[in-house]
Design a protein around this nucleic acid. Structure first.
Lengths: 109, 109
DNA sequence: TAGCTATGTTATAAAATCTAACATTTTGTT
DNA sequence: AACAAAATGTTAGATTTTATAACATAGCTA
């Protein structure tokens, strides 16, 4: 989150995403339809995904396997975003314990 | 070279490569034809490029701008490969001064 | 049982990519 | 200068991917 903006660059076509996640195109588009991910839609209607999108998809996959439905995942995601922005508010980067933050997120799920 | 096999994974379609390098499809395929890069050719005849391929293309671009032709670049590349394998021969990873190696390569070109 | 959720399947259209040929420009050589 | 080779542009036609959208279905859940 704090390093590597490169992970946010939309580079990958859906076929590559399918290969990296073992999701079907239908699933990937369905999650987009429900605003869990937001690939880039350039010019000709095509979708381009970032490495962050891959991470998000893998997490969706995991949460679904745990029996959480799309609505639940939506909440999980928004809680995470909120947590992140709280972390940043008025704090210096060096003062943030990212390791702890990640561990907490991991055990919470 | 010593870390991140991920950089070697073929993920990117040619359109993305064009965007990342400002090369035309014609140029990219031409360099492949001359064995300067070797994208993956899966199933349906499509090409998939890795991040390493991007680096190679950027270097080709730079060397061409310096007036070196394809034949020259081919030699540069093979010298590098040779240098790399020499580096590894009978050495422990920790004993290799990669920073020095990179700097030498940079100033030599 | 009836409805909703997540996904599959299919048809059709639009883009992207591929190959291959020919054209153009630049550069090096005689 | 003339010619050959190198690097890239351009175009056409075929193939492959991707997109949209509709309908189908299995598994839950009220």
């Amino acid at each position: 989150m704090y390093k590597d903006k490169r992970r946010a660059i939309p580079l990958l076509p859906i076929s590559t995403v399918m290969g990296l996640t073992n999701l079907t195109a239908r699933q990937i588009r369905y999650y987009e339809e429900h605003h869990l991910i937001e690939p880039l839609r350039p010019d000709g209607n095509r979708r381009l995904y970032s490495l962050n999108n891959i991470d998000e998809l893998l997490e969706i996959q995991e949460l679904l396997e745990q029996g959480i439905n799309i609505a639940g995942i939506k909440i999980v995601f928004s809680l995470k975003k909120e947590a992140n922005s709280k972390m940043y508010k008025g704090r210096r980067l060096q003062d943030i314990n990212f390791r702890k933050m990640i561990e907490e997120e991991l055990e919470q799920s």
